[in-house]
Every structure is written in C-alpha cells, then in structure tokens.
Amino acid sequence: MLVLLLVVAGGLAYLVSSIGSDVPRIPDAFRGLETTERPAASGGTTFLLVGTDSRAREPTTGSGANPDAVPGSQRSDAIMLGTLAPDGHSASVVSIPRDSWVEVPGRGMNKINAAYAFGGAPLLIGTVEQLTGVRVDHFGVVDFAGFTSLVDSVGGIDVTVARATGNDGVDFVQGENHLDGAQALAYVRQRYDLPGGDLDRAARQQNAMKALLEKVQEKATTDPGALYAFATSVGDAVSIDDSLSNTGLVQLAVGNRNLRGSDVTFVTAPVAGLGREGAQSVVYVDERHGEELWDAVRNGSVRQFADLNPALTLGDVPS
C-alpha cells in the first residue's frame, strides 16, 4: 500500500480511488486502544505494515482471501513502520525484527510477532506503540501469497546479493539477481546462512520493498498498462484498516505525488544483541539507541538519524 501511494498519485489519483474500492478493509483494527493512552499524533502519517507468516495455499489477505481465514491467526513475519512526512517530500521505513523480545500488553514478555497471533491488529498496534511511542495511524497486512503476486504483477524485482547463498530451493548468485514472486519470497524469508540472521532478513525485506518501488516507478513512466496491472493487484493481495477511506487514500497519494525511491530512508531498529528465552531465539532491543530512533520518527528526522548510524541503514548490497 505504501508503494502504491508513492507511485500512483497526482494525475492518477482517480486510479487510487478506484483501486481503493477493491482493497478489503479490516474492521476494528484499533479496537480497545484508548485515545488518551496512545502516543500523541505526529505531523506525518504512519502505517504499521505487516507481512504474515502464513503457509496456507489459499490467500489470507486481500480480496481473494479464503472466507474462513481469520485475521491475526498467524504470527507476523515482517513488521515495518512506514511514515510519510507531512510536507510530502520524504518518507521512512523502519523494520522491527520479528523476534524482538518486548512487553506485549496483557501477555507479559514475548516475541513481538506473537502479538498478532494473540490479539490480531489491535494487540500488535498496541505493542508497537508501547515500544516506540509512535502513533500508528493506519494498518496494512499482506500474506506470502499476496507478496508473491505483487512481485509477479510487475514482472519480478532486481536485487543485489553480497555473496552466493540459497533458501527454500532457490539459489542466489553474488551480484544482481532477477527474482519472480516465489524467488522473492524465498529471498525475504531467509535468515539461516546469513551472518546477521533475523537482522539480515529484515534488511532483505526492506531491499525487496525498495526494489518493488523502483520497478513500479519504472513502469509508471514506460508502461502505464503494467502500472494499472500492479495497482489492481494490490486489492487482490493487501488488506488495510477500515479507518482509511478511498478519499483518504487519494489525499495521501496527491500529497505525496513527488516522492521517489531516493526520498525513502530505510532503517532497522537498533538491537542490543541476540539470545534465548527458554527454547526461543530472541532479539534484545537497544532501548537507549532505540529511543533516539523513535524520536527521529516522531519529529521527521530519520534521514539525519540514518546518516549518524550507517550500520542501521539499508546499504546498497545487504547480505
């Protein structure tokens, strides 16, 4: 959804409205979250973007979802905070490692990705807001099948890999790789045989989003028909919260019509180290440096934070 907003804008705002009608809404995504207890709203618009750990053959998100699919019945595989600046000239995407060991409201300490399985969108939103102090304005979710179809809808994505590796039967060569949807899914889900494990996986997820954004922007200037195909595929793959109306989508698209991929800063939340809690492998968050990042998200200075913390910033060639 964030990629759609960054690309299909301006003169194509009508398309956003048209596509918006096809995007399924998640009812009561903010249920039980008391306004007085939530972080104060910042100037930007922040999306909590989630990829679910669904291995079902049939889609669980988007308009093609199995009617029996239960939102929040899986753990979240990717968790990102995407923020659009109020002036429409910059954006940021911050990945929170899915194994981050955090306080889940009402559930005690657990991995952050368990919050979605425990209580769906409301509990995950509440957990992220408690961790970051950042107000979540909207929620979007896509499952494995939806991610695969989005990548296939633009003819695949191009990513550069630091060294030869492989996952789930897919081999990645050192250097540039062109990936179809299934191959891209294997790319973003790999963590074994990567030096940073879950942290490198988060970087790969960002890299895939960046590559998808670049491919869609290319289609926008060279092949409007392909752009329309991508836009329509969003409704088939993605679900968003019911507080984001078609009018709201158009306003966001028009307001950010000048954004390009180079205007988006990709960062991973700082961690203090890796460890184990019982039988679980976990990621311990770095609270001190984390607070610096969340302050930057709130005041719109993530690019400056990234310049000062290059190790946390998406590089040209992630592992």
Rank of each mutant, 00 (worst) to 15 (best):
D286C: 08
A269K: 09
A203P: 01
G166V: 07
Y284E: 14
L5Q: 00
V154H: 00
A269E: 14
L274P: 03
P24M: 08
A162L: 14
G44H: 09
V3W: 03
L12M: 08
E218H: 14
A182F: 03
D22V: 00
P318A: 10
V302L: 15
P122C: 10
N177K: 00
Y116R: 14
P27V: 09
Y116P: 13
T232Q: 05
D28I: 09
A306N: 07
R191L: 11
E277H: 03
A40Q: 14
Q206D: 11
F30L: 14
S76H: 01
F144R: 12
G166N: 10
A114E: 10
M1K: 05
A211T: 01
S281R: 06
V254R: 08
V104P: 02
D168H: 08
A226W: 00
G10W: 00
Y187R: 12
D77T: 06
A115D: 04
G196L: 07
N113V: 14
D28A: 15
P59N: 13
V8D: 04
L81P: 09
E291P: 03
P122H: 08
L179F: 02
S73D: 12
A162Y: 09
D242W: 04
V104N: 02
E277N: 06
I157N: 07
N256R: 05
V142G: 10
M109T: 05
D53I: 07
V234K: 04
R288L: 11
R204H: 14
N309Q: 09
W294P: 04
L249A: 08
K210I: 03
P224T: 01
V302E: 13
E176G: 07
I19F: 03
L244T: 13
G175A: 12
D68N: 11
S63A: 14
E37Q: 11
L33V: 08
I240L: 13
Q183H: 12
P270F: 04
V136Q: 05
L194G: 12
D143R: 13
F30N: 14
N258I: 00
T222S: 15
G51Q: 03
V94Q: 07
Q280V: 07
A29W: 08
P310F: 00
Q280H: 00
G11K: 11
P24R: 03
V267E: 10
M80T: 04
K111M: 11
G82E: 07
L49W: 01
T36Q: 12
V271D: 03
D99N: 06
V136H: 01
G44R: 10
L6A: 13
P27W: 02
N207T: 03
V297I: 15
R257T: 00
L252W: 07
G166R: 05
L12C: 03
A182E: 05
G255C: 10
L81W: 02
R57Q: 15
A211L: 01
T247N: 12
M1Y: 07
D68K: 11
P318H: 06
L124N: 02
L249M: 15
S92F: 10
N110W: 06
Q251K: 15
G197D: 08
V8G: 02
L213Q: 13
Y187T: 12
K215L: 01
V285I: 12
V134F: 06
T132F: 04
A279H: 01
A121L: 00
G51P: 05
Y284L: 15
D168T: 08
L212D: 04
L312A: 13
I96K: 04
Y192P: 08
T313G: 09
A69C: 03
D87G: 15
G120M: 09
G10E: 00
